[in-house]
Structures are given as structure tokens and as C-alpha cells.
Design a protein around this nucleic acid. Structure first.
Lengths: 126, 126
DNA sequence: CAGAATCCTTAGAGATACTG
DNA sequence: CAGTATCTCTAAGGATTCTG
């Protein structure tokens, strides 16, 4: 046997794909990480996350909310204050995310080295 | 202090973003997982990964190759045979990926429950 | 301050057909 | 079998403007 059968939990349509689709966009992981230390306000996230636009932040937050990973608290104050925090379910994703960041810390340089050793996407003509 | 300073390793421009950008697309993680058990041929990956097109597979493989995470072996045979395998560097990414799949296995249902408890992306008018 | 709504520009991604 | 090359379409994502 060379590998994976049709019932493999990761490949093809299976629950594990969910994790990838949840994470496979530009901002989801960053936002979750930003919430990993406790409740944070909308504006704080904008400042702390480099380069995210208001639109993308809100959109990402809504998606995470719909998936049950974060909760939104709107306080009836003026000026308005809204805080987001991880749900217990969302908190379970922090460990995997931390593993990713640790990986990047440890291996980021190696990847960058490989990148400029081989700058252009090689076309394999053989 | 409420959270993250400008020097935080994850947010803003920093090496940890690399991990996200590497992973934040539809197929990268799936392909890496597909290679986690040893060298695999192009065609095998197509079969084993549900729904990927030839184009996207090749494109993903090229990118991973350029980042130094996988290696390509083309055998001068007929019919042609090409195998891909993780580099030592690429192998270090398998643990974090496994954590993601474990997470999905454990919490996938909870996410789906949350999704159909709240089917449409709520517009917060408050 | 938080966010909804619009417009606009690309990148992502599938389908198909062709080559060594 | 492995891969490249187009063509096309959609959706991601940014900038900007407007409102409670």
C-alpha cells in the first residue's frame, strides 16, 4: 500500500477539511491569535494587526462568530464599545495556532533562505 | 496593558506571518498532509486528494518546492514517473498540521452545530 | 467607535486542450 | 504520466464613503 485509502480522514470530503477551510484565508489565524490573550476591542485589533482593513476584520469576525469560535459583546455606551473574545470552542484552536507560530519562529529563516536560493517558480521541462 | 505591543512576533510584519501566508490557501495543507507518509507520485496525489485539479496541484507543489518544503524527483523512465517528498524542513511542518487535523476531528461537529444554529452571517445593527 | 454599503481591481481556481 | 498554456469566472480583498 502506497498511502491513503478513500476513507482517510483528511483527504477528500471529511471533517478535517473543515479545519483547513476555516483557516485557509489571509486573516482568520491572525485574528484568532489576536484574541488569544483575552477580550479585545475592534479598534485594538485594527491597530495591533498589521495591514488588515476594517472591512476584512469585521468580515472575519462575523465568520468566526458564526462558526462559534468567538463571541461579540456590544456595550450600550457612548462612544460605542464592542469587544470580542474567544468561546471555549475557539480557545481550543489556540494550541494548534501556537504550534504554527512556533514553527515560523524556528524555521522562518530556513524558508526565506530557500526562497531566495530559488527565486523564480521553476518550470520543470523534464 | 491590554494586549500586544508593536514588537509582537505574530501581528504586523514579522516572521510568524510567513507560516500563515504559507498555509493560507486552499490546498497547501492538504498536499503537505498527503506527503506526510513518504514519497508520493503526482497522480497518486490527484486521486487521494478530493477535488484538486491538476493545475492547482502542480502550482501548489511548485510553491512548496520553492519554499524548500518538498523535493521533486523525476525518473527518466517511460512512462515518466515523478515523485514528491518532504524535505527535513517540510517534515517539521507535519506536527502542526497534525494538530489541526486532530482539532477538526475533535471539534468539527461543534463547529457545524454552531453554523446551523446561526445559518446566516448576522448583521449587527446595534 | 463600530460597522454597513459601494465600487473596483486583482488573484484564485476550474475546465479544457496541447506537448514531451 | 506529468506538465504547460489559455481562457474564463468568481470571489477575495482593498479604498472610500456613509450612519447610529
Amino acid at each position: 500500500m502506497s498511502g491513503f485509502g478513500p476513507g482517510d480522514p483528511f483527504l477528500a470530503d471529511c471533517p478535517a477539511r473543515l479545519a483547513v477551510e476555516l483557516i485557509a484565508d489571509k486573516w482568520t489565524v491572525v485574528v484568532l491569535y489576536g484574541l488569544s490573550r483575552g477580550p479585545v476591542r475592534h479598534g485594538e485589533l485594527i491597530e495591533v494587526i498589521g495591514g488588515i482593513s476594517r472591512k476584512m476584520l469585521t468580515q472575519t469576525l462575523r465568520r468566526l462568530e458564526a462558526h462559534g469560535l468567538i463571541r461579540r459583546h456590544a456595550y450600550a455606551e457612548v462612544p460605542p464599545r464592542v469587544e470580542y473574545e474567544l468561546t471555549p470552542l475557539g480557545a481550543t484552536l489556540i494550541d494548534p495556532i501556537h504550534m504554527l507560530t512556533e514553527w515560523a519562529r524556528a524555521n522562518g529563516d530556513a524558508v526565506l533562505d530557500a526562497l531566495d536560493a530559488d527565486p523564480e517558480p521553476v518550470a520543470h521541462s523534464d
